[in-house]
């Protein structure tokens, strides 16, 4: 498999050097693998810090900036960062108002961020944590590591980031982040596996003519394999999985919708898919207030898509529309 890299073990470092060169508004510590907004710490503001394995770009470093994250710490490809990185990002961005860690629910992320929380408190940094676990493909929570954090992470980081930017205290930002995390549901589909630099090739076999339903964002195979379907059919399966999990509440409030590419599906196809998703949602009586289409929570070069729905009220809708200025999301400023 050909990749635009120098060496597998240098992929993250090289990307951070490139990010530093492209974004003077960010402070990129390549050696320690921490990305923070240049004006941090912002006086009186709660700091939002997130991180996770690399390979999901623009998540998380692409969401550092005004109105979203204060800091991010990228780990190796598909490997959560170490506690030292999260601590460094927290300490560098804490204004004294405290730090909220946004953590996707994977065993490694939870363990490393828990250690970082303890270290932060030892250093006198007030720290809280919100867990994102929005993937409805994981049905059997008692017999698994629980639902994975996927596309819902973007909504948690944007909405809690907007609240923090407005000066809300730590307890309020944490409660809001938790509410958003609880309001998000995601479901993903792979048309091709992804290739990790370490392996140099695909992480699983997916024959031509088949697709994988219920995938995560780490190139791990999903729960079920079926014959390839049309965009309209994939939209039906995806929306039904989300609505089944939401139950009756699905038609009570409007939603934010993220139609997300997994990395190598063209925007042309994603927009076509969004049309089908919207058609199915409308047929089921679900109202979409805002839509985001693009590659935001990716899985290296995997082809495929995921849909995330986030139930909103007027306050959350206002926070969604609030100004944001990051490498990957930018509006209102």
């Amino acid at each position: 498999m050909k990749m635009l890299i120098n060496a597998p073990e240098r992929v993250v470092e090289d990307a951070l050097r490139g990010m530093a060169a492209a974004h003077p508004e960010l402070v990129v510590d390549v050696e320690n693998r921490v990305v923070i907004r240049r004006d941090a710490p912002v006086a009186g503001k709660v700091s939002l810090v997130s991180g996770g394995g690399s390979g999901h770009e623009p998540l998380h470093a692409g969401f550092v900036g005004r109105g979203m994250l204060d800091g991010a710490c990228p780990g190796e490809v598909f490997t959560s960062p170490v506690p030292d990185q999260a601590l460094r990002a927290a300490a560098a961005t804490d204004s004294g108002s405290g730090v909220l860690f946004v953590v996707k629910n994977y065993t490694g992320d939870v363990l490393n961020f828990d250690m970082a929380m303890e270290l932060a408190e030892d250093e006198g940094v007030r720290a809280a944590r919100v867990l994102v676990e929005d993937d409805v493909a994981v049905t059997d929570s008692l017999f698994t590591a629980g639902r994975r954090g996927t596309g819902g992470t973007l909504f948690v980081e944007k909405l809690a980031g907007a609240a923090a930017e407005e000066g809300a205290p730590l307890e309020t930002v944490e409660a809001l982040a938790r509410r958003v995390a609880g309001a998000c549901r995601s479901y993903g589909v792979a048309l091709s596996p992804c290739s990790t630099p370490a392996k140099g090739g695909p992480t699983f076999d997916l024959p031509a003519g088949e697709l994988e339903l219920g995938i995560g964002i780490h190139g791990e195979p999903g729960r079920e394999r079926r014959a390839m379907m049309t965009s309209a059919e994939i939209a039906e399966v995806t929306v039904d999985a989300l609505l089944e999990d939401l139950g009756d509440s699905a038609t009570e409030h409007p939603f934010l919708a993220l139609v997300n590419g997994m990395g190598s599906t063209p925007l042309l196809e994603l927009y076509g898919f969004n049309a089908e998703v919207r058609r199915v949602l409308a047929a089921r009586g679900v109202v979409v207030a805002r839509t985001l289409v693009g590659n935001y929570v990716t899985s290296l070069d995997m082809a495929g898509c995921s849909v995330t729905l986030c139930e909103v009220d007027e306050e959350l809708l206002r926070l969604w529309d609030a100004p944001v200025s990051t490498a990957a999301l930018r509006w209102g400023c």
Binding site: G53, G75, E76, T79, S80, P81, V82, P83, D84, Y106, T107, G108, L111, N112, M115
Partner: peptide
């Protein structure tokens, strides 16, 4: 703990 990350580090 400080070099591996993921679940296997901790």
């Amino acid at each position: 703990v400080s070099k591996v990350g993921g679940a296997s580090g901790p």
